[in-house]
Amino acid sequence: MGRPRKISKDDILDAAERVIEHLGSTGLSIDAVAQKAGISKSRVVYDHKSKSGLLEALVARQMAREMADVAEAVVRHRHTLHPELFARIELASRSLTDTDRAIVMAVSASMSSAEHLQDRIREWKCIDMDAMQAGPRPEAAVMAYLALTGMFCLDLFGHPQWTASEKATILDGVRSIYENLPLNTPPIFPKT
């Protein structure tokens, strides 16, 4: 007889992502995740307490992944005018997966009643805004970042669906906002 398979917290979160991808946010439940992971419901509850806890763990994991990707991209862009901005522009060229979109929809649907999820997302965006304002030409960086964020939100919701060439053109435009915004632009963004 073989050893029982060890299930990690990441295995549970992977199962939650698969549930969301296949059933949407309405299909996410402790039972569905336990079944998908092949474990007991009590194990999911022990690790995450609730559906909201699962979503918060998914957000935290995605934040950690994204922050690691940004850190690596900042190193690649260390010789640009604004490494933090140009790193995020590079990462925005990636294609989003159906799982990415499904998770965002699930988190979005839950945010109205889960203030701690709102706090996590705000924390994530404050990190980005602080990075934009810490570099040279902070007003231009914030304007470009806002354009980048708008493009990303549209991309998450799958409309419009840009080709790789169209997306590259848009991202060149975002770079252009940073590079060409007049230097006498008054500071309009408070520090987060």
Rank of each mutant, 00 (worst) to 15 (best):
Y46K: 03
D47E: 06
D47M: 13
H48V: 03
H48I: 05
G53N: 02
G53H: 07
L55Q: 07
E56P: 00
E56V: 02
A57K: 01
A57W: 05
A57P: 04
L58W: 00
V59I: 06
V59D: 01
V59H: 02
Q62Y: 05
Q62I: 13
R65Q: 14
R65N: 03
E66A: 07
A68C: 06
A68M: 12
V70D: 13
V70A: 13
A71D: 13
A71L: 08
A71G: 11
E72C: 10
A73Y: 01
R76S: 08
R76D: 14
H77G: 01
R78A: 13
T80A: 02
T80D: 05
T80S: 14
L81A: 13
L81K: 10
H82D: 09
H82W: 06
H82P: 06
P83S: 11
L85S: 02
F86V: 04
F86Q: 07
A87L: 04
R88E: 11
R88K: 15
I89F: 03
I89A: 03
E90S: 14
L91A: 09
A92I: 08
S93A: 14
S93R: 13
R94Q: 10
T97Y: 06
D98A: 13
D98I: 11
T99F: 06
D100P: 01
R101C: 09
A102E: 00
A102Y: 01
I103M: 14
I103W: 02
I103A: 00
V104A: 04
M105H: 09
A106M: 10
V107I: 14
S108R: 11
S108V: 06
A109I: 01
S112G: 09
S112T: 07
S113E: 15
H116T: 15
H116S: 15
L117K: 04
D119R: 12
R120F: 06
I121L: 13
I121Y: 04
I121S: 01
E123Q: 10
E123R: 15
E123S: 15
C126G: 04
I127M: 14
D128R: 11
D128E: 15
D128A: 08
M129Q: 14
M129I: 15
M129K: 15
D130Y: 09
D130K: 15
A131M: 13
Q133R: 12
Q133G: 10
G135P: 04
R137M: 02
R137P: 03
P138C: 10
E139N: 09
A140Y: 07
A141K: 07
M143C: 07
A144R: 04
Y145I: 05
L146W: 14
A147C: 12
L148M: 03
L148Q: 00
L148F: 00
T149M: 11
T149E: 09
G150E: 11
M151G: 10
M151E: 06
M151I: 14
C153Q: 13
C153D: 14
C153N: 10
L154Q: 13
D155K: 14
D155C: 10
F157Q: 11
H159V: 12
H159T: 12
W162G: 05
A164K: 12
S165N: 11
E166G: 10
K167W: 01
K167N: 08
A168D: 09
A168T: 10
T169Y: 05
T169R: 15
I170F: 08
I170G: 05
L171Q: 04
L171W: 11
D172L: 07
D172Q: 11
V174W: 00
V174F: 07
R175H: 03
I177N: 04
Y178K: 00
Y178G: 01
N180Y: 10
N180W: 11
L181D: 06
P182N: 08
L183N: 13
